[in-house]
């Protein structure tokens, strides 16, 4: 063994190098922890989260034309859309629209399939519930979107 590696070994250079790294990281400014309920994470625009049914902002009518494309596109077959043709306006209108959140994997295929941008996966992500009840969303819940819950002890 030549001298330099021997000396490096004797003076524990390898270990001290590692110790230096961990020591330098101790500064509180290096910490990357996000204190979740107090600090909100940044959610980007394309995030696929809580589903929402959009309605026309001017008239308040649902944008959904009951074409059933979303239900067909969904691999989990968790969307059930039932509609009826309105005899006066000759438009199909939603009778029942359910979305089973508990089985959704947020792949986004349904929103991609929707021809009118009625169904959209939004940036809300706090969808956890204590029970399975309430996981099946109906049209009203989907249009309302998520009500943000404040963090309280």
């Amino acid at each position: 063994m030549s001298l330099k590696p021997l000396l490096r070994k004797l003076f524990l250079v390898d270990l001290i190098k590692g110790l230096k790294v961990t020591f330098n990281y101790q500064a509180p400014s290096e910490a990357i922890t996000e204190q979740y309920p107090l600090e909100r994470p940044v959610i980007f625009e394309r995030f696929r989260g809580q589903p929402r049914l959009n309605s026309n902002p001017d008239t308040g009518e649902s944008l959904c034309i009951v074409c059933n494309l979303c239900a067909l596109a969904c691999p989990e077959q968790l969307i059930v859309v039932k509609g009826e043709r309105n005899p006066t306006t000759k438009r199909k209108e939603v009778v029942s629209w359910t979305y089973d959140l508990s089985r959704c994997m947020f792949c986004g295929l349904c929103a991609e399939a929707c021809s009118t941008d009625a169904l959209e996966l939004t940036q809300d992500y706090e969808m956890a519930l204590y029970t399975r009840e309430g996981m099946v969303l109906d049209q009203a819940a989907l249009e309302r979107g998520q009500e943000p819950k404040r963090y309280e002890k």
Partner: peptide
């Protein structure tokens, strides 16, 4: 340990 591991530890 937490600060060495760029965490905050108990808060």
């Amino acid at each position: 340990l937490a600060h060495m591991q760029i965490r905050l530890g108990p808060m």
